[in-house]
Design a protein around this nucleic acid. Structure first.
Lengths: 113, 113
DNA sequence: CATATATATTCAAATATAATAATATTTGAA
DNA sequence: TTCAAATATTATTATATTTGAATATATATG
């Protein structure tokens, strides 16, 4: 699926520091579970749990190589997401310039915070 | 802050259908709470809760206009996020082309699923 | 076959999140 | 000063998520 809803579901699953770290590594190439152990500071079962969740969500998949499982990134949306996660944002968006205009906006009070 | 960690925190807060709908509306302009009530199918207190969470996270803010609260988008990262949420992704990423190469990859078994 | 390695699964505890219902606050208008 | 509109807050309940511990599975190697 490529719907907004499915992307939001993926976002939710991905919104976790360890999972982002896993996906960022996978964006550079294939990795097996013990590769992740080296730089994620979490237990092997926990890594497997994260990998399993990401796979259930259709975000990653793996090939079997002997007793290794070689994981790779499957979902292109995640690549774009990783990119904006690394982007620098230097300033906030400009607030509304003049008095807010909303449907029910018939009040003319001071514009305060 | 503009760190990876802070963006992941923001992602987590934003990963909810109602919140994405709110933010998408705000990306078009200022809106007050009752504007949201028209198109989100959720209760007013629940909308307030979502708005409050988004504000606590520094993603939105508001101006007061009479008895309205006119919310606006503050966080530029969210704009980029909304953009990729709308983007069409037509195919999966290409899997690894040849035998996986991982640090511990000393096995030469069949490459199976 | 026995063993060790690589990885997965299951379960329970701790914690976090979301929705609802009830109530409160703020403010403009009469 | 009272009332109603717009919005927020709180408590409660239901549910989901995360982690750790223990255990299981699969496979390569001797």
């Amino acid at each position: 699926m490529n719907t907004l809803k499915s992307k939001i579901d993926e976002l939710k699953i991905v919104s976790h520091p360890a999972r982002i770290a896993i996906l960022d590594e996978l964006s550079k190439g294939v990795k097996c579970v013990s590769d992740f152990q080296e730089f994620l500071g979490i237990s092997q079962p926990n890594i497997s749990q994260h990998l399993s969740a990401l796979r259930m969500a259709g975000i990653i998949d793996f090939f079997v190589d002997g007793r290794l499982r070689c994981y790779f990134l499957k979902n292109p949306f995640v690549l774009d997401l990783l990119e904006i996660l690394k982007k620098e944002y230097t300033s906030e968006l400009p607030g509304p310039e003049c008095c807010p205009v909303t449907k029910k906006g018939t009040y003319h009070g001071e514009r305060r915070r």
